[in-house]
């Protein structure tokens, strides 16, 4: 049965979600103390004791952006391998030829992209 276990996990996730959010609401409204006259520093952004300056969302780290691009592509590729792996015994050795072609086509650009991404002078 493919659908086996789906209601249970949905009930479980629902129960965990409801009880955690319930706990947060109870804590925020009932238990946690309120400061009637908070100083401005209490609600300021934390910067190791300095007064917060400038934008909170600072510059992005862009040196590793090529890795992000590769991740977007090759994370999906891993899923295809799962589909092949689960049927490996049924497919046997002949079923391997398409996946070998698939991997060869996809891993060659990966090797080139990695060579470029690993070069510090391209950052």
């Amino acid at each position: 049965m493919v659908a086996e276990g789906i209601p249970e996990i949905v009930y479980y996730l629902g129960f965990v979600t409801v009880s955690t959010i319930g706990l947060v609401v109870v804590l925020l409204l009932l238990i946690s103390p309120k400061d009637p006259r908070p100083t401005p520093e209490k609600h300021a952004a934390f910067e190791s004791g300095q007064i917060a300056a400038g934008r909170g969302r600072t510059r992005f780290i862009v040196q590793y952006y090529p890795y992000l691009l590769m991740f977007v592509v090759y994370d999906v590729v891993a899923m295809f391998l799962f589909a092949w792996a689960v049927n490996l015994r049924a497919l046997g050795a002949p079923g391997t030829i398409p996946i070998l072609v698939f991997m060869a086509v996809l891993l060659t650009p990966l090797a080139y992209a990695l060579r470029l991404a690993n070069k510090p002078e391209n950052w």
Partner: peptide, 16 residues
């Protein structure tokens, strides 16, 4: 805020 923002970005790169 600055430290959380840098931490969040690091988490993203670490995931890749």
């Amino acid at each position: 805020s600055k430290y959380p923002f840098i931490g969040g970005l690091r988490s993203l790169f670490q995931q890749t």
